Simulated assay, not measured.
Amino acid sequence: MSALLELKNVKKHFPLKSEKILSRDKPMLKAVDGISLSVKSGETLGLVGESGCGKSTAGRVALKLLEPTEGEIWFKGEDITNYKGEQLRKLRKEMQIIFQDPYASLNPRKTIEQTLAEPMKIFGMPKVERIKRIDYLLDVVGLSSYHKRRYPHEFSGGQRQRIGIARALSLEPELVICDEPVSALDVSIQAQVINLMEELQDEFNLTYIFIAHDLSVVHHISDRVAVMYLGKIVEVGESNELYTNPQHPYTQALLSAIPETNIHKEKERVILKGDLPSPANPPAGCKFHTRCPFAEEICRLQEPGLKTVSEGGQMAACHFAKEVMMEKVLT
């Protein structure tokens, strides 16, 4: 299975206003600070972490909605890092996004038909084909053709997200970035939307990057999972392996926060101390050491790189992954 999308040492830094106008060192918010990821054709890569870890920014950079500060973006074997103008416009057919807030992402002054037709118009699809395509899209996302005359405020949150999914699929893309697509929905509706997305993935051979902070949802839909902390990937691996044998203490803490459904089973919690540091002034060494219950002197001085910690290819950025970490957790 070939890589559809690759990020190579990608960074996205935002300049901050500074009182030191004459200073050469401009303060920067390091939202994404050197990540490398690959997404295979037809798979779902879950991207998880706390709010502010940089996962949504990473998704927007991958789509070229934001220009990377450094690094390379490869899509279908081509370097698209410097694509602009017509090159980038053509690329939009193959790469789409589903937003977190289905209401905010829909124009309240346009009918659903107008919303779905807009990208098709831009790429020159004839009106007759547009009408057929709109009816088809509404049907595959579980709505009816008579819904197309309505406006966004006439739908529930779950229905609006189905419309957002239909819009993302309007140009038959290969890659869809799902930016927390169910976090604004009720739990019962979340399951319906997740099941719909899985069905559509099989039907249209879609590749997903599924961004979320709810690890139980990510586990359900993802083939592989990457965990982000302060703009860095700290662990990545096959979904089942990462969930059953997490090697990074941050991943362990996130997984321990998932509610236990078995009332007869006790679950040990890993409590993180302190707040998430500012990405404008991240800690030296391992970025997680200020909150890590296992941090030692080397963690404060030296930043660990991702290293393979299992035969299945699981990787973790921790000085003590595999050799020491699990022993410490069990004692």
Rank of each mutant, 00 (worst) to 15 (best):
G42I: 01
I35A: 03
P282D: 09
L5R: 08
D179L: 01
R167S: 11
V193R: 02
H213S: 08
L242A: 00
Y250R: 05
H220D: 11
E303L: 05
G164H: 09
E50Y: 06
K273W: 09
S188C: 05
L5I: 00
Y103M: 06
E268S: 13
V227W: 04
H147G: 05
I21C: 10
G52A: 10
G77Y: 01
G85Q: 01
L306T: 04
V10R: 01
P283F: 13
E86A: 14
R133V: 01
H213R: 00
A3M: 12
T111N: 07
P68A: 00
T115C: 12
D179Y: 02
L4R: 03
T69S: 14
G142R: 00
A62Q: 06
A62P: 04
R150V: 01
M1G: 14
K148P: 01
E203R: 15
F155D: 09
E154M: 13
N82D: 14
E260I: 14
V218Y: 02
T44D: 10
K127H: 12
V217Q: 07
I163R: 04
G54R: 10
D139W: 08
G157S: 04
F99C: 08
K55R: 03
I97E: 10
I112T: 05
L4S: 03
A58D: 10
D79G: 04
S105A: 11
L65W: 03
K267E: 06
C292Q: 08
H248C: 06
A166P: 05
G54L: 03
L66Y: 15
V141W: 06
K287I: 12
V324H: 14
S278P: 07
F155I: 03
R162Q: 04
L185I: 01
S239K: 02
A58F: 01
V39C: 08
R150N: 14
F123A: 09
L171P: 12
N245Y: 13
K307S: 12
Q314A: 03
L29Y: 12
N107G: 07
D223S: 13
F294L: 14
E311M: 11
E260K: 13
V10D: 07
M28C: 08
Q201W: 08
H147D: 15
L276V: 15
E235I: 10
S310M: 10
V32F: 10
V182R: 03
I112K: 02
L138D: 09
S41Q: 15
S216H: 11
V193I: 15
L215Y: 07
S105D: 07
L45Y: 05
P259T: 02
V48R: 08
E118L: 07
E43F: 07
M326H: 14
K121T: 13
R109G: 01
V182N: 07
M1A: 13
I211S: 09
Q314W: 08
L169F: 05
A168Y: 03
L116D: 06
H220I: 11
F123N: 12
F155C: 03
K267P: 02
R109V: 12
V61D: 05
L88Q: 01
K148E: 10
T207M: 00
S23F: 02
F99Y: 09
G49D: 04
